[in-house]
Amino acid sequence: MRTAANALLAGEPRALPALPTCALLGGGGAALVGYVLGAASGEPWLAVFAAIKVPLLVVLATLLCLPSLYVVNTVLGLRADLGLALRGICAAEATLGLTLGALAPLTLLVSLSVFDPYLVTLLDGVLFAVATFAAQKVLARHYAPLVARDPRHRVALRAWLVLFVFAGIQMAWVLRPFRGTPGFPVEFLRAEAFEQNAYVVVFEHFLRLLR
């Protein structure tokens, strides 16, 4: 398993571990961090829900962006390399989960040390940002030979990052709660899951801050 993790993180396109191994590494890490996030509430079911929802978040956000990947690659005339691009994305998502898992102990420490809910949310944002950075680094490595062959691949690579982050943030909002809020019932999804937009909420928070 350790060799597989090494190979995954090194991002050598030819040494990518088999798909089930990638899924296990990424899914395991994401589930672990989900469990830690949910367990912070002290509600055992919330921990289980969150352990399901973090891997779900990664998978759903990826699936959501795959059609656009196909279209972008086709429009740019890069269809022939789609298979390699998909392998890279598979590696990137596994890296995302694995990095999240590696940061799980730090997340636990944050739960025990930070009591300001806004700061906790901010640090959770940093957690996901760091993991996304790691994933993008691995993706860039898989893309390196492609970019060398055709610089247009660079456009596809950046487009993926922008779209994935954009969709991922809203997906995380829909799938909330992860940590849970005291006083709210323990549930898999909030009743109003599909009613709000993460960006609008953040924008409104900013406005309230300025007022």
Partner: peptide
Amino acid sequence: IVTMPSLYVFSAL
């Protein structure tokens, strides 16, 4: 225990 996994991931990365 808390810091080891992240050190490993980032050095492997």
